[in-house]
Design a protein around this nucleic acid. Structure first.
Length: 492
RNA sequence: GCGGGAAUAGCUCAGUGGUAGAGCAUCACGUUGCCAACGUGAAUGUCGCGGGUUCGAGCCCCGUUUCCCGCUCCA
């Protein structure tokens, strides 16, 4: 059932109807790839983050951190993002082939480069641009001029018009090159010049790396130990798509584990297993989860080995978490660029070493969507269809609904008292509108695991029925024991 | 970024150039006896946005935005 595109649309629709996800800036026509978390969505998201945070920090060897989104621009030079985080693309309108502009030069021989530069010079009749081209040609030979012009914001498009597509040979069929860095730029202070440029972080990890020694010194941790952080990150993606899956603003849950270089393999394997189990323990079916190891030739610039935990979304397998061995790349680079030592002093061997880093980088937004997809179910009950979110108890936004069977004989008063007893311990919802069957179904649709109903017998003996979401079965328990009941059920 | 589809009430959708509609949902009143009950009444629309054609546009044309699908891409 999950393998048809309809499911995503149904989830999008349900998300809006029931307050999980709204489109950002909807009244203005929306903003591409931006989404808001509604009343239910923010509860689910917070529950996911809480489970992750607890699993990471309720142990001896991991410390928490919340670093700022804006960081010194040199951080991103050191990390490699300023140089490597670019992706200028063009398409051939004729044959639909896509090329990276920076690689296009390598696909053309010198003769073609010279020819295209000459043609550009001849065909250009805009005086300002013409003089720019002539200046370039006077300072460079034609081949070098090609490489400069192809990267030039103003001239690149004109030069592309003079080129033939390497695949189909059609001339002038390229789209405009989009020349940009995937990092969002902004400016600090009132003057918007190059000296005041800062970036919105494209990953939270660097905030951990630059604080490595601060955390170690203040907590007296010994290797191996980790630093965990949850926060927003931003990437100016060319295309957003698939609901929450590929967005420009997203939230990461990252834990960087610092180890002795010789132990890197051991901890990489260990964290792979721990992280996979985390998803399974929160209700994801093993069949919908897999590892995808990165082939060596596709590794990121900082990684020695890497794997993704992928989830089987309605649109196919997609990464929800990356686990990388980042080696000592980041700490070494930050030593280089900052001129400060980031070495760890081993008290036993009396050695100064630069630790290796095993990174676990989970997408909070992507996990959110995976948990939502996993939970979504359509069932037939007595000839009627019901839609139910089978969310894990720990993740469900609302833990229990409290319902008077009918609005008379004092039932609402008893139900309201139960609500007041429970409301500061659990996220609960009181509903007395319409028939009770309808109220059950409404709660099913937002994933509430328990429905507590006050009926005639409650008036006599203070017992209530508790209906379980997935089985729809009811048990009868004393209203005094509800708190203990929920506490037990929700903690497993 | 390319190609295809879509956008009308909160949701799902009908409306083929001539008065803006249905079902569900919402609200009020009545009713109520455990899985989307019923009656009566009410409220709800820049027909995604901007132009154009026309006596007249939700409908035709152009542009644009957003979403979905496929391709491409994802340091």
């Amino acid at each position: 059932m999950k393998n048809n595109g309809n499911v995503l649309e149904k989830i999008v629709s349900l998300s809006k109807r029931r307050g999980y996800i709204f489109q950002s800036s909807e009244i203005y026509g929306g903003l591409n790839g931006c989404w808001d978390y509604g009343p239910m969505g923010v509860e689910l998201l917070n529950n996911i983050k809480k489970e992750w945070w607890n699993s990471m920090t309720l142990r001896d060897d991991i410390e928490g951190l919340d670093s700022s989104i804006l960081m010194h621009p040199k951080v991103w030079e050191a990390s490699g993002h300023v140089d490597n985080f670019t992706d200028p693309m063009i398409d051939c309108k004729q044959c639909k082939a896509r090329f990276r502009v920076d690689l296009l030069g390598g696909m053309l021989n010198e003769k073609r480069k010279k020819k295209s530069v000459r043609a550009l010079n001849e065909n250009c009749n805009e005086s300002e641009l013409k003089s720019k081209i002539e200046k370039l040609l006077s300072e460079n030979n034609e081949v070098n001029a090609f490489d400069i012009i192809i990267e030039d914001e103003q001239l690149s498009g004109l030069l592309l018009q003079e080129l033939n597509c390497p695949q189909c040979g059609t001339k002038g069929s390229f789209t405009q090159a989009r020349q940009f860095n995937l990092m969002f730029k902004t400016f600090i202070g009132p003057v918007e010049d190059s000296g005041s440029v800062v970036y919105l972080r494209p990953e939270t990890a660097q905030g951990i790396f630059v604080n490595f020694l601060n955390v170690q010194n203040s907590t007296r941790q010994k290797l191996p130990f980790g630093i965990a952080q949850i926060g927003k990150a931003f990437r100016n993606e060319i295309n957003t798509k698939n609901f929450l899956f590929r967005t420009r603003e997203f939230e990461q849950m990252e834990m960087q584990y610092f180890v002795k270089p010789a132990d890197d393999k051991k901890w990489y394997d260990n964290w792979k297993e721990q992280r996979m189990n985390w998803y399974k323990n929160l209700g994801m079916n093993s069949d919908n989860l897999r590892f995808h190891d990165h082939p060596e030739n596709k590794l990121a610039h900082y990684a020695k080995v890497a794997t993704d935990i992928e989830y089987n979304f309605s649109f196919g397998w997609g990464e929800i978490e990356g686990i990388h061995n980042r080696t000592d790349f980041d700490l070494k680079r930050h030593e280089e660029f900052s001129g400060k030592s980031l070495k760890y002093f081993d008290e036993v061997t009396k050695e100064k070493i630069l630790p290796f880093i095993i990174e676990t980088s989970a997408g909070a937004s992507r996990s959110f969507m995976a948990f939502l997809t996993e939970a979504y179910a359509e069932e037939e009950v007595k000839g009627e269809q019901r839609v139910v979110l089978k969310l894990h108890n720990k993740l469900a936004p609302i833990k229990a609904s409290i319902l008077p069977l009918v609005n008379k004989d004092g039932m609402p008063e008893i139900a309201k008292k139960i609500k007041d007893d429970l409301r500061f311990k659990f996220k609960i919802f009181y509903d007395d509108k319409g028939a009770v069957g309808r109220r059950y179904r409404r709660q099913d649709e937002i994933g509430t695991p328990y429905a507590i109903t006050v009926d005639t017998q409650t008036i006599e003996d203070h017992t209530v029925t508790v209906r379980e979401r997935d089985s729809m079965e009811q048990i009868r328990i004393s209203s005094d024991s509800l708190s203990a009941f929920l506490h037990e059920k929700l903690s497993t």
